[in-house]
Design a protein around this nucleic acid. Sequence first.
DNA 1: TAACATGTTACGGT
DNA 2: AACCGTAACATGTT
Length: 260
Amino acid sequence: MPEGPSLVILRENIASLTGLKVREVSGNSKQDLQRLRGRTLRAIRTWGKHLLLDFGDDLAVRIHLLLFGSYRIDEEKEGKVPRLALSFTKKRRLNFYACSVRFIETPLDDVYDWSADVMSDHWDPKAARGKLKSMPDAIVADVLLDQDIFAGVGNIIKNEVLHRIRLHPETPVGALPSRKLTELITQARQYSFDFYEWKKQFVLRKHWQVHAKKTCPRDGTPLSYRQYLGKAQRRAFWCDACQRRYGNVPATPATPLRRR
DNA sequence: TAACATGTTACGGT
DNA sequence: AACCGTAACATGTT
């Protein structure tokens, strides 16, 4: 559920709540939810993996679904206590479960750098390039997950983008030829839009080339897999035959199993 | 069925 | 202060 494109879909699914007034609020969030009572939902925005319910007058609710979060529109989830349940006028409802809920009491434009959001109209590839230039030693698997650079990109998108551009996950940013760096930035956004379309059509999974796969779709080469790769310590799937590693950086030894 | 996963944050230690 | 590693959280799926 929770990568950037899924949040855009969520935003679109609840767009019809814009302009409605909150009649009742409940939920097990620690925020003072009753402050929302009687307020009008002025706008719904997203930034990366954040859903932003803007109630105006410097009060917005930030929802982050993390790994397990979910939502329901105009219905309840059987046997689950909502973290936040909003009842609106016109008998509309919106529930969120197992997620992070926080108030933001600063204008959203002051808090968020919209140019970093790969799904945003304000996405700025040049800004991303500048940030990447300042961190030559970081590996590409880590920078794709860096929300200050590629807000909305998650682990699936990371793995798929790197395969699409035939780039090894452990390549340091500084070792990338200029054109490859351009591809990385371009495809971080392009793949996210492909993800968005496939997700809407319920065909996302079948388009996965490497994520959670065993062999490379190009020629059946067994994929390499590391459970905890890079600083982010996330799963990486890649093909050593077609994903090139740049730079004279020795392959890192297999990551020791992280204690869990 | 136990382990894991599309994610992040809080906290303690250095 | 900045950085690092670990625990914690939560739930559907395999």
